[in-house]
Amino acid sequence: MEQAADQLDIAAIVNGDSKEFAKLVDMYKVMVFTIAQRMMKNREEAEEVSQDSFIKVYRSLKKFKGDSRLSTWIYRITYNTCLDRIKKYQKEQGNIPIEEVNGQAVAEMGNALKEMELKERSLMVKNCIEKLSSSDAAILTLFYLEERDLKELAKILGLTVNTAKVRLFRARTRLAVILRKEMEPETISSYEG
């Protein structure tokens, strides 16, 4: 992605070249929309927030100094735009309590998921992510979009690396709890059979 980003002519965009900016939008729209959709939990709002984020990117591209990856900078703008919208409409979904997920439960879930069809598994993961709070969904999404780079994740969230690590661990555990609840014991045993 960053190699493709190198081909972008940032100076041309700053000078008002819409065609070059359209290339940037095409390059990042899926990731930006994914972050927005997972945080806003609503397709229409996600579209609006994604558009707003790209407009902010366009307006402030001249301030981009290149001290982080372009993707990190764009995701940070998207994350903050989503947070602003959530704060404005007080839409933050509460976090579910963290429960301990032991090794056996993890193994059972893992086996059941492996047996599932890819399509079915994707749908289940998507549903579980939807049940996470906006901040947990954002942390998990950003971590994997940034190729599991904790430093970049911390930059986007405006946190220290250690705090980002703790939040990531909590988000993973909450996702596992939701996944376990979503997969009834019967479902797990039917796939294990």
């Binding site: 929309f33 997972r38 579209e47 879930m109 598994r121 994707s122």
Partner: peptide, 19 residues
């Protein structure tokens, strides 16, 4: 184990397609 499982499933998680 939990981290490994989450890595596996989240990397497979489908990205959302804009209009």
């Amino acid at each position: 184990h939990l981290e490994k499982l989450m890595d596996e499933i989240l990397q497979d998680a489908p990205l959302e397609q804009p209009p």
